[in-house]
């Protein structure tokens, strides 16, 4: 147990050190979603959207939940990238030749991605606050939002790591990411509510776990606990199933590559 903590601690610190050495990339990772989506997109569409349709005091207030979950999505899906590079340059094999538990590399990655994502969610909510979006459920709501983020993020990071272990080249990996990420965003309630979508898109959006996450986060910001609790109950069930499927797939991919 002490050995396991030592391994996971050292591997997690490696990810932290890497991020801190890549100053530019760190800034970009932390601030890109807020700048692009919340500030630009939110203000751009402020007057083009109908508050009757989005059922929110402003478009930014509506969008905040979407941006939070989009950030979780993007961080999760990119969570395997560093392992992909480790696999390609032989670093992973070096790690696997040491007497560590086979899971510690993966666990270190989960810890790192989840921590960064949670920090980012806090920053996004902080920026939204500056634009007048004050979560009605307060600190308790923010804690629940981060909890939902962790539940969703685990499955996504698992998918990303599974991909990293299975793809032949990193070109394949990045095209798969691009292929997954944008449709996930458009076919969800991140940008518009279900009622504003063409029937077939709203139908597809209902199959998207991201929609369920957003539908639980949004009332926490806009309406209050009474409206949020049923959605939270549903999202927990959806995410447990989603995570179970993703983790099973990732475990298979991991076993296949690393035995």
């Amino acid at each position: 147990m002490q050995d396991y903590a030592q391994e996971v601690g050292a591997l997690t610190m490696r990810w932290v050190k890497r991020l801190s050495r890549e100053k530019f990339s760190m800034l970009f990772t932390l601030f890109q979603p807020m700048v692009f989506w919340l500030i630009f997109f939110g203000n751009l569409f402020q007057r083009a959207t109908d508050t009757q349709v989005v059922q929110a005091p402003s478009y930014i207030a509506f969008l905040a939940a979407g941006v939070v979950v989009m950030t979780i999505l993007n961080n999760g899906l990119a969570g395997g990238v560093d392992l992909l590079f480790d696999k390609e340059n032989g670093f992973l094999e070096r790690l696997m030749s040491t007497p560590i538990s086979r899971t510690s590399v993966i666990i270190s990655r989960f810890i790192f991605v989840m921590t960064i994502t949670s920090l980012q969610v806090l920053v996004i909510l902080g920026v939204a606050y500056l634009f007048g979006v004050h979560p009605v459920t307060g600190i308790g709501g923010v804690v629940v939002i981060i909890g939902i983020g962790l539940l969703f993020g685990i499955g996504l990071t698992a998918i990303s790591m599974a991909l990293a272990f299975s793809v032949k080249s990193h070109g394949d990996f990045f095209s798969m990411l691009g292929f997954l990420s944008l449709p996930m965003i458009f076919l969800s309630t991140a940008l518009v509510p279900l009622t504003a979508m063409p029937w077939w898109m709203s139908w597809l959006a209902r199959l998207n776990p991201m929609t369920w996450a957003i539908d639980a986060v949004r009332p926490l910001i806009l309406t209050g606990w009474t409206a949020a609790l049923p959605s939270i109950a549903i999202v927990v069930v959806v995410m447990v199933v989603f995570d179970a499927v993703c983790l099973y797939g990732a475990a298979k991919a991991f076993q296949k590559t690393l035995g």
């Binding site: 050995d3 030592q6 391994e7 601690g9 050292a10 591997l11 490696r14 050190k17 890497r18 050495r21 890549e22 340059n89 032989g90 670093f91 094999e93 070096r94 790690l95 030749s97 040491t98 007497p99 560590i100």
Partner: peptide
Amino acid sequence: QLIGYVPQERAIDRFLTGREHLELLAALYH
């Protein structure tokens, strides 16, 4: 536990210092 391995590729993390590589490995060998 008993072997050392020097891979074919330069399996180096270019963002870490030499000492940090060795510290990481030392922790992995407990």
